[in-house]
């Protein structure tokens, strides 16, 4: 056995993995090699020092300090979670209710015109229907060229914001289940 094999043998002994037939060879080497013998003695000293070293205890009151910190952390999470919820709700309302609010200012005027022209409504029904179809075509063209891209952008933006919101909610209110 050479010195390198002896060192591996020492580590196997320390790991309690040494095979019984390898130990006499190691002992024989240690008897004859002064360098390995002194290394083995030092390794055994290290072993003794570490095995007898006590566990170090924390200062009293650590449990209450941990729980107080945890409580503060939870409070902060609740606030941030609430904020995330409010942002999500606000975005949702903005994207769904606002377009309807946009037509409200024009509604009284439209009603007034409808009442004034009510008398001649019958006469103009046929020409009105034609105008209606005309406006429909114009509206559809406007919708396809101008409003649709805006709407798509709005939907993408909304989905992005909802995804951010969901990730925040999941982060601060994780689903508690054992895995």
């Amino acid at each position: 056995m050479n010195c390198e094999e002896a060192l591996n043998g020492m580590m196997e002994v320390l790991n309690a993995e040494a095979l019984p037939d390898a130990q006499p060879l190691l002992l024989e080497h240690l008897r004859t090699c002064r360098v390995c013998r002194s290394r083995w003695e030092r390794l055994q000293r290290v072993e003794r020092v570490l095995r007898t070293a006590p566990l170090v205890s924390p200062a009293p009151g650590l449990t209450s300090r941990v729980l107080a910190r945890l409580e503060r952390h939870r409070r902060r999470q609740r606030i941030l979670g609430g904020l995330a919820f409010a942002i999500g709700l606000g975005t949702f309302l903005l994207l769904t209710v606002l377009p309807f609010l946009g037509i409200l200012p024009g509604l009284p005027g439209a009603l007034r015109i409808a009442l004034r022209t009510g008398e001649v409504l019958g006469d103009r029904l046929i020409s009105g229907f034609g105008s209606f179809l005309n406006s429909l075509c114009l509206s559809a063209t406007a919708f396809l060229t101008l409003i649709l891209p805006l709407l798509l952008c709005g939907i993408v933006l909304g989905l992005g914001l909802v995804a951010i919101w969901l990730s925040l909610v999941c982060r601060f209110y994780p689903i508690r289940r054992s895995v």
């Binding site: 300090r65 941990v66 945890l70 054992s178 895995v179």
Partner: peptide
């Protein structure tokens, strides 16, 4: 130690 327990509580659902 405090940080370990804080993380443990946070990720307890993964235990």
């Amino acid at each position: 130690t405090q940080e370990t327990f804080l993380r443990a509580f946070q990720y307890l659902h993964r235990y």
